[in-house]
Structures are given as C-alpha cells and as structure tokens.
Design a protein around this nucleic acid. Sequence first.
DNA 1: GAGCACTGC
Length: 620
Amino acid sequence: MPLNRKQIAVTQPRRVAAASLAARVSEEFGCQIGHEVGYQVRFSNVTHPHKTKLKYLTDGMLLRELMIDGKLSKYSTIILDEAHERTVLTDLIMGFLKQLLVSKQRTDLKVIVMSATLNAELFSKFFNDAPILFVEGKMYPVGSFYLTDSNEDIVDTMIRTVIQVNRSEQEGDVLCFLPGQEEIDNCVQVLTQLAPHLPKDSPIIVPLPLYAQLSPNQQAKIFEKLPARRRKVILATNIAETSITVSGVKYVIDSGLRKVKVWKHQLGLSTLLTTPISKASAKQRAGRAGRESAGKVFRLYLEKTFDQFPKQQESEIIRNDIILPILTLKKLQVDDLLNWSWLEHPGQEAILSALNTLYSLGALNDSGKITSLGYKMAVLPLPPQLSVVLITAMEFGVLNPVIDIVACLSVDNLLLNVGGSNGEVRDEVNYKRRQFCPLGCKFGDLIALKEYFNYFMETNSAETKAWCKELFFSYKGFKNVMKVRHQLRDYMIATVKQDDSMKQHERDGLLRKVKLQLDDEEQGEMDIPKVLKSFLKGYITNTAIGMPDRSYRTFNTGQLISIHPSSNLFGKVNLDCVMYLEYVFTAKGYGRNCSAMELGWLQEIAPHILGASKISIANS
DNA sequence: GAGCACTGC
C-alpha cells in the first residue's frame, strides 16, 4: 500500500474520549463522523473502509489490531495520546512499536507520543532520544492555598473548608476530591444537614456525590442547572480527575488522598489503601478549577507535604497483576520476557509469578511455550481465569449459563451501591434482592447473577427499568451485559471454528454441540454443580475451607479470610468450602464474589492440588 | 457482622 493511502491512528485510554475527539475533529474538518475522521472502540466501529484517514481508537483496540497484524501495516502514523497516564495497554503498545522500529520491520512508520511535560524525558529516552516538542496548553491561572496546620480528620476539614469557601468566595461551583465513597457519603450527609443553617448572605450550597458506583441517573445530577444563588458542591473520587468533566467549577478542594489497588503477587491478593496523591495528580485536580476562567485550589495539606509527594503515581504495570499482559506477549511470540522492550520493567518476580499462574491455568506448557488453550485464552476479551472458565464450561455442556454469568462479571457497577449512609434503605434493598435469587442465597453470588439476569431477560423493558431502580441494579449495565454476552457467544463459536488442534469432523461435531448449548430454546434447569465446577477450573487457588472454629482459611496458604459483606453468603459460617473470584485486603482479608462449594468438587477438578494444601481438611 | 478508586478488549 502506498504510504499516503495509509491511515493515521490516535489512541486514547478511554472509550468516551475516542468517540468525543472524533466528533470534535470531524466537525472542525468539516466531514461526517465516520468518513474521513472516525473512531473505533469496543462495540462500535464508526469508520469507513476506504475513506477514513484519521482514526481515533482505544489503546486496547490497537493492541487487538496488533495481534492480527503485527506490523500495523495499514497505518502510516501512530499517535499515542495521554501516554503520561501510563496504563498497562499504552505501555505495551509502546514496547511493540519500539520493536517494530528497532528491528526495521517498519522503516516508514511514524510514532508520536503525546504526554504531559512531566515525563516527556522518559518517552524520549525510550525511543532512542527522540526529539521533544513543547505545545502550550490553554489554561486559566489557578491560585493555590495550603493548610497552615496539618489536618486530623479529612471529612471534618473538608466540611469546614467548603463552608469557608462558600462564605468568602465569589460565585462558581466547588469540586472536592476525596479518597472514597465512605468519606463522600459522610460529607454529603453533614453538608446537607448544615445547608439550611448557613449565613443567608452566601449562596445556598447543594452537595452532590460523584463516584462510579452511583447510578447514571444520580451521576447526571451534577450536570443539572440550578436556580440562582445556589452553589453546587460536588464531592468526587478520582472519577472527576480524568473521566468526568463538570463545567462551572471555579474552586477545587483537594484532600490530597486517593485509593489505590495494589496487587501483591507474593500473596496472590490485592490491597486497597488510601494513599497520598502525586504532584502530577495534584496539578491535574487543580487544573479542574481553571477550565473556563481563573480559579482557586484549596489543598487540605501543608505546602511542605506537597513537596514530599512523589512526582507521579506508580504506573499500572508496576502495581497490577500482569497475567494478561504476559499472555498477550506470549501470543505475540515474545519468548524472552525478561529482556523485552519494557517501557518500565515490571520486575523478574512479577513476571515469574504471572508465568506460574499461566502455567497452572494450562496456557503454557512445561517449556513455557503457549498451548492451544493459551491461544484461545488470549483471543477472548476476558481475564485469563475467566477464559479458562468459559472453555471448561463448553466441555461441561453448560456454556449458556456460564456465558451469562461471565458477561455480568465483565460489566462494572452492575449492582449499584445503595448509597448514602441510609442503613434502612440498604437493608430493605438487600431483602428485596434476595427474593430474586433463592438459589443465589444458597450457592452464592455467581448463581445470583444468573438469576437476576434471567429475570432481566424474561420481562419487558418498562418492567425491568422499574425493577432495576427498585433493586439498585444498573439498567444500562444490563444492556451492556447483553452486548458482552453476544460478543462472547460469537467468540466461542469462532474459537471452535479456528481450532486446528482437531480434525475436520471432530470440529464440526463440537460446533454442533456448542451451538446446541447456546440455543436458548434448549435450556432446561441449570446444572449448578457443573456451572460452579467450571469456575473452579479458573479459580482453583481462590478457595477457602471452613474450619471447626467457624473461620475460613485459604486452601493453598492457610491464610485467614472472611466473606465480604457485599456477598450473599456473608454471615454464613458453616460452609465446607468457599470459592471467591477476588481476594482483597482492606481492614482484613476478604473474599469477594463468593460461591459455596463442595469438597468433592475440588477433588474432582484438581486432585493434584489437594495434596499440596497447607491445611488439613481431614477433620472438616 | 461491615464496606472498591479508575480503565480496556
């Protein structure tokens, strides 16, 4: 293809950004979106096969394209935007692009990395001292103010600062950054109570919470226009730092804190801790006050403390588990992982731990080469554990229910937080939810998801909308479940069609079997043991045994673990065995998304692991 | 008997 016929790709870490940038640029360029300028993200491809010259896409999408065409031949130029955010996917793409350039597989490819100035050096060095261009951004000045005494209680300090800002500052909305929803709910509650009692010569404050687990409806409140003499006080998590932009904000109050999930590969669990933000993050938060006019940021920490903040946050590739990235690299025929062109090396231990997990999932063989199962896993748009679950479900003949459950698991914030600190409403919602999952109450959260999903499928949309509202389920989330479900069904059929490890007639036979499994008309009662055993194949190490003292201990290491309060099985102390999809350490070790298992199922799925357990299960 | 920030295919 001649160079000038090739496309220009611009990657974005978030889907909405890809879509809205394409809309803006096509308008400025004067074309219909999807013609010369288009975008491609999961579930929507707004491009033209011949016309599109400039394509906005998510970095995950570009990585998919890399798997199909390792040379990215259809592009003349790749522009990586927001590279400073250092998502795992942007990091990986950068490593591949470097390989393409260094190995001279592509001599005509231009790569442009766009980043905040702060870490331009890092990218320049990585691409063999590539030249750096500086582009001034348009931004109004933002004055910063710091505390003069260190604060004791962040919620209390936040509330007092809001009141003071409201009393002494000109009109303009206030955006407050807090670490988590607990702090936000507390602040909203107190400020709502105080609002009517504040001095009458100041605007009336309208406190509004903003975090991911609120329903789209509740989130939309922050965009509503208020009557005169009111002032929005938005209390938000990091969601307002990059994902959601609110107009009208003139003042930012920054707690200087955020919550970070860090994966501990030595322990096989993640921790969720409140930690100080970075200087880069503090700047980004402050910038939210200067988008439309000059603004102010009130930082709830000492200036000295700011100076001690790290320059930037630890990158994702350092703090996340890298099981999927390692599988992706293996799929792309990278053998020497330790010496690959990592933008930032995740460390030998993390790599070995990921390899180990992939080996036990069956994705790699004894010599570390990717297996045919591993190929299938790498193609599915799921974490490797869930890919194993799907492939096992196909063998067990329970693909239909398992796809539905996995689709539910793939959608974030499907089950919303009841929100606020209203205990009565919460208990009532929990009670109502239980009415819809009689089997889930017994077998746990995975089966409950299937029961909810069945109800969603069986009723008409007006009813389901009301049902979702009443039970605090996300209607939009369930709509997304449908999209994922559809995609997974297609992928599973494609997986069989492309499986060259068996003969033609075997493949045809399996294909018929799979299609039969997916035929909704054929579905009878769900075979719960088989469904849960499919999950066990992917999560065999995530099991805990019920001990005589009514506690649970993890099966492989003997650690104490509790059932998370959000689980249907919360409070149950007499289960033989619990399987959890995630092990998080906050106040203590919690298993999240739990299912009740029989010891016999463990024995059946992983007899070899049973012998290696650190705890004795003879007496239970 | 107590609580999860965000993003991607």
